[in-house]
């Protein structure tokens, strides 16, 4: 065990630059996917909350997307985006979409209707209600979805090195091909760390962004 660890350590040290590069690549890939997920998912969730007829069909489609294996999805999307990062991001985007859509929709619809009515009665426009009331109140639920999406993206990204998307998957698959535990771990451990850190980062963000008025509510509910 000790021998293995020292071997692992020296491998990390001598390949630090390359591993760091792969980690950054991995993170970029995942965050880009989450970014697009937010870009589409939040407006999508808002629209679903406004036009409830959309909810069934949209969730059905995104759920179905979720169940398609990553490589199969990549196969389809390669037709559009070719081999490489573009397809990688597109595949991950498909996986981030469902949690973000669902969380946005849930977050907005769980805002007390009396508050929305009060806002309307005070003369806020739809946009102002969304921006000043619904989204701030939906934020914590929304961030749960973002966290799930991010963790899924980071995890799934490891597979996508197979289609040339880069990232830590390259190291893992190289290790598999060469039956090298050290190399597999040299890819897997940073990927796992990324997921844990992203999770913590989002918790931190949640604490930063949530109004103290809502935080009091939660601690009051617990006590």
């Amino acid at each position: 065990m000790a021998a293995f660890l020292s071997e692992f350590g020296s491998y990390l040290v001598s390949n630090a630059d390359r591993l760091l590069e792969l980690t950054v690549e991995h993170l970029q890939l995942s965050l880009a996917a989450v970014g697009f997920g937010l870009l589409v998912g939040i407006p999508g969730g808002v629209l679903m909350a406004r036009f409830r007829r959309l909810v069934g069909p949209v969730l059905w489609v995104t759920n179905a997307l979720q169940t398609v294996p990553a490589l199969a999805l990549a196969g389809f999307l390669m037709i559009l985006f070719g081999l490489g990062r573009g397809t990688g991001i597109a595949v991950l985007f498909c996986y981030t979409l469902m949690p973000i859509l669902r969380a946005t929709y849930t977050g907005i619809t769980s805002v007390d209707p009396a508050l929305v009515e009060a806002a309307r009665g005070m003369g806020m426009t739809r946009w102002q209600i969304l921006r000043m009331v619904q989204l701030p109140l939906a934020l914590s639920v929304l961030l749960v979805g973002v966290r799930v999406a991010t963790v899924i993206a980071i995890g799934t990204a490891t597979i996508l090195s197979l289609i040339g998307a880069g990232g830590l998957g390259q190291e893992i698959f190289a290790g598999i091909r060469r039956v090298s535990d050290v190399r597999i771990l040299a890819g897997a451990v940073p990927a796992a760390l990324l997921a844990v850190l992203a999770d913590a980062g989002i918790s931190w963000l949640e604490r930063r962004l949530t109004s103290p008025g809502l935080r009091v509510e939660r601690s009051a509910a617990q006590s």
């Binding site: 009396a114 508050l115 009060a118 009665g121 005070m122 003369g123 426009t125 109004s211 008025g213 809502l214």
Partner: peptide, 19 residues
Amino acid sequence: VHLRRRIGYVIQQIGLFPH
């Protein structure tokens, strides 16, 4: 929207924005 801004409105559920 303009109409409502010049009419005060108070509801039973109070409806203060918690955030």
